[in-house]
Simulated assay, not measured.
Amino acid sequence: MEWLQIITYAGTFIFAVTGALKARTHLMDIFGGAVLAFVTAYGGGTLRDILLGVKPVNWVNDNIALGLVISALISVFLFKENLKHFNRIIFFTDAIGLGLFTASGIKISLQNGITPTYAIIMGVISSTFGGLLADILCNEIPALLRKGELYATASLLGGIVFISLKHNGINDSTNLLVCVVLVVSIRILAKRKKLYLPEI
């Protein structure tokens, strides 16, 4: 299994956990949890593939990805009584998923012939739109749109570094790892230091 597959599957599992935990905070039943887990895990990648013209989209016929989402849902269900401070857990799982899907989204876009600039945009879409859809389903203002610590900006900065390293001849495995670590680090640092973008 290649690094890209590992990162993509890890992101799928992490975002599915995030979606299931979000359903838990809204006191949803197991079906509601399944819907949010699937939407969070697949939403961004599905939109990316539609924009890229990839057929079928990434999760169709992928039994491993399906198994990971179901495993994430079951894990949250079984350990829900031992998971305290849901908001804190959601933040960290979401930050990790943000980094993983930024890196994989950019790499997949480049493999499909997209220019570096638009590959970065596709990376941001891959990593943020699943959470956006989940927030809408929960009747919340999406984290992507509300004022808060750097979110899509962290993805954007990680994508720029990914492309810069690639342009300078750094191998893709290193790029993927650096991108993930950088996005997660920026997201956590922004939360702790309360870093915000200026208001419009």
Rank of each mutant, 00 (worst) to 15 (best):
I74H: 00
I70F: 13
I106A: 06
G53A: 14
V60C: 05
S75Y: 11
T117H: 05
F15C: 04
G44Y: 02
L137S: 03
E81T: 12
L51H: 01
I160D: 02
I6T: 09
D62A: 00
I14A: 01
Y196L: 15
L47Y: 14
K84D: 10
L52I: 09
T8W: 07
S173D: 13
F162C: 07
A20R: 02
P198Q: 07
G99F: 00
M28S: 08
L145I: 15
N61W: 09
H26Q: 12
F129P: 07
F79T: 14
L156W: 09
G44A: 00
A10N: 03
V17A: 06
N61T: 07
F91P: 02
I200A: 10
G99V: 07
R192N: 14
I163G: 08
N58H: 13
S164C: 09
G45Q: 01
T25F: 03
F92C: 05
G33P: 05
Y118K: 08
I108K: 06
Y118E: 07
L27G: 11
L145V: 15
G158T: 08
I70M: 13
A190C: 04
F15T: 03
L68Y: 07
L83A: 02
E140N: 12
A37H: 07
G169H: 12
S104E: 12
A190T: 09
L47S: 04
E81S: 11
C179Q: 04
A10D: 04
W59F: 14
V69T: 09
I96A: 15
A154K: 10
D94A: 03
N58K: 08
T46F: 09
N61H: 13
T174F: 13
N87G: 14
I163Q: 03
S155L: 00
S155N: 00
N112Q: 02
P56K: 01
G19P: 02
S126E: 07
I125S: 00
V178M: 10
Y42V: 14
G105S: 04
V181T: 13
K107F: 11
T174Y: 13
L156P: 14
E81I: 11
L27H: 15
Q111L: 14
I136L: 10
K55A: 15
L98K: 02
S109Q: 08
I96P: 09
D94C: 01
G53Q: 01
S164F: 15
I200D: 10
G45D: 00
A143C: 08
L189K: 10
V54A: 05
L78Y: 10
F91V: 06
F15Q: 08
I64W: 12
A23Y: 05
F86T: 06
K80S: 12
N63S: 13
F101R: 06
A16C: 00
S127N: 06
V39R: 03
A16L: 07
I125Q: 05
K84G: 07
C138G: 05
E199I: 12
I74K: 03
P198Y: 09
I30E: 13
F91R: 10
K194E: 15
L73P: 06
V180P: 03
A72T: 00
Y196R: 12
L177Q: 05
I106D: 07
T8N: 12
N112H: 15
G130C: 09
Y9F: 11
L27Y: 10
T102V: 12
S104L: 11
V76K: 01
G67R: 00
D94Y: 05
Q5F: 03
D49P: 01
E140R: 15
I70P: 06
K193R: 14
I7N: 01
R24F: 07
